[in-house]
Every structure is written in structure tokens, then in C-alpha cells.
């Protein structure tokens, strides 16, 4: 057991956002946090590295209580990629170098530069090194944000919807990269997601959140039409396409009615 979260509680303006969250994860896993909009997925991520301060509960990372560490100490253990990153007149190399912030004393050392360079090679982004980030596409920018979290040399990577705003190819690229990095470096990645199909393909463990608690937590076998309908309030079908599980919203009847309705008179 690498990270264990117990009885985490967070209130926002007297409203219980997270009532009682508890789960634990293993090294080398990709965890998908799933649930409808506004259920507190982002809040949960932010509570894990204390961007938001939980009212109650513990987050243990390898015998260490994360919530009791200093902000810089947390940043040396947990990398965070928010949904939105700002750009500026900065080269990709400098933008990623910023990820060394928790390790930098007065100034960067040759070691910091070497780590950044290694991550550029690792993510095959060498050609982008001196590109200004305000001239980058959404996919490239997301890669920069992930690279920035990687140079923090974290044990846990938190990603808030890493594939929102990306085209299909970039989605697959980014998730494949995350998958490989997690495996190769024996870290863990926790990401919030909306696309159940991508989650099924790239995550090992699934956490469904409902009413401020973990509705169900486990491997891909827990992802059933019943669970999804309970959590999202929408009936779905799950089928297999060349051995890959796919989730499609609606039931057969609705689909047919729709098709019928759209047929020109």
C-alpha cells in the first residue's frame, strides 16, 4: 500500500463537498476518479496535496502523513497538473524547469537542467525545447504541464482531467505517456476523467464518487451498467469491440427512437 486516504472530509461554505472519502492505492497504478460534474473530483485531488485544507481525515503516503508536511515537502512528493494552465512568454524548457521549484535553493543547478532535459527526451519533446509556450497547441501545452509535474520527481501524480480539450490522438498520446511513466518509475497517477472509455483503456483502478463518498472502488470489473447508472443517473450499455470494453450512453430502445425521430418525413 502506497497511498491511503481515510475519512477525508471537506466543506465549502458550510456545504459538505466531501463527506467521508477513503481509499488506498498501490505503486505503479493509474487510478481514474469518476463521477458527474460537481461531485467533488477536483476538490478531492486538491485535498490530497493540501491545495485545499480538508476539515478532517488523513492522507498517508508510505507511512508519512502528507497533510502534516510543509508545502514544499508536499510538492517534492506529489505533482499536480491542474485543468487549466496559463501561458506566458516562456520557452517550454523554462516552463518545465519551473517544476524544479520545490528542489531549487537560490538558483538552478546543472542537475536540475539535466533532469529537465531527461524528461524532454523521455516524452519525445526534444524539438519543442525552445518553443515559446504561448505559441503552442493545447496538446503540446498539456505535455509541458505533465513534464513540469514529472521533473518534480513525485511519488504521486495528480491530474485533473488531463485529456479535456484535446483531440483524439492527443488524448491517446497523453494517456499512453502517463501509463508508461507510472509503470517505468513505480509511481502512481490519480486522474479525474469524464471519458469512461478512455478510463477503461488506460486506468487500472476506478473510484466512483457519489454524494461525497466513494460509491465503489476496484478494478475494471466494477464498471458495470448498474454502477454507471447509479452514479451518473444515465442508463448505459457496455459492449466489447475487438476485445476492448466500450461504454455507450442510452439503451437500445432510446437509440432506435432517436434514429426514428431524426428520419426526414
Amino acid at each position: 500500500m502506497m497511498l491511503s486516504v481515510n475519512e477525508l472530509k471537506f466543506m465549502y461554505r458550510n456545504k459538505n463537498v466531501l463527506r467521508e472519502i477513503g481509499f488506498s492505492i498501490e505503486r505503479g497504478q493509474v487510478i481514474a476518479v469518476l463521477g458527474p460534474n460537481g461531485v467533488g473530483k477536483t476538490t478531492l485531488l486538491k485535498c490530497l496535496n493540501r491545495i485545499l485544507k480538508p476539515m478532517h481525515g488523513t492522507v498517508m503516503l508510505d507511512e508519512e502523513s502528507l497533510l502534516d508536511l510543509g508545502t514544499m515537502d508536499i510538492a517534492r512528493r506529489v505533482g499536480y497538473v491542474p485543468q487549466r494552465v496559463e501561458t506566458g512568454r516562456l520557452t517550454a524548457f523554462d516552463a518545465v524547469l519551473l517544476g524544479r521549484r520545490p528542489h531549487i535553493g537560490w538558483d538552478v543547478t546543472p542537475h536540475d537542467l539535466a533532469v529537465v532535459d531527461a524528461v524532454f527526451i523521455r516524452l519525445s519533446m526534444g524539438a519543442l525545447r525552445l518553443t515559446y509556450i504561448d505559441e503552442m497547441s493545447g496538446g503540446e501545452l498539456q505535455k509541458v504541464a505533465i513534464a513540469r509535474a514529472l521533473v518534480q520527481e513525485p511519488k504521486i501524480l495528480l491530474l485533473d482531467e488531463p485529456t479535456s480539450n484535446l483531440d483524439l490522438k492527443n488524448q491517446v498520446d497523453i494517456l499512453t505517456t502517463i501509463r508508461e511513466v507510472v509503470r517505468d518509475h513505480k509511481i502512481a497517477a490519480i486522474m479525474t476523467m469524464h471519458d469512461l472509455n478512455q478510463a477503461l483503456r488506460f486506468a487500472d483502478t476506478f473510484i466512483f464518487i457519489k454524494n461525497g463518498t466513494v460509491y465503489i472502488h476496484g478494478d475494471r470489473d466494477i464498471v458495470t451498467p448498474q454502477v454507471i447508472e447509479e452514479v451518473y443517473g444515465l442508463p448505459v450499455m457496455i459492449g466489447e469491440l475487438s476485445g476492448v470494453r466500450c461504454v455507450i450512453p442510452g439503451v437500445c430502445k432510446i437509440t432506435l427512437e432517436r434514429n426514428h425521430a431524426y428520419t426526414p418525413p
Binding site: 496535496n49 491545495i51 508545502t71 517534492r76 506529489v78 491542474p82 523554462d94 520545490p102
Partner: peptide, 17 residues
Amino acid sequence: WNYNAIDAGDETAQGLG
């Protein structure tokens, strides 16, 4: 470095400690 981090967004900055 803190100002560079804030330029990258408040949340990124907080994630960087």
C-alpha cells in the same frame, strides 16, 4: 521562481509548493 510559478496559474503554483 515564485512569480514564475504564479504566472503559470495559481493552482500550478500551489502544486509546486
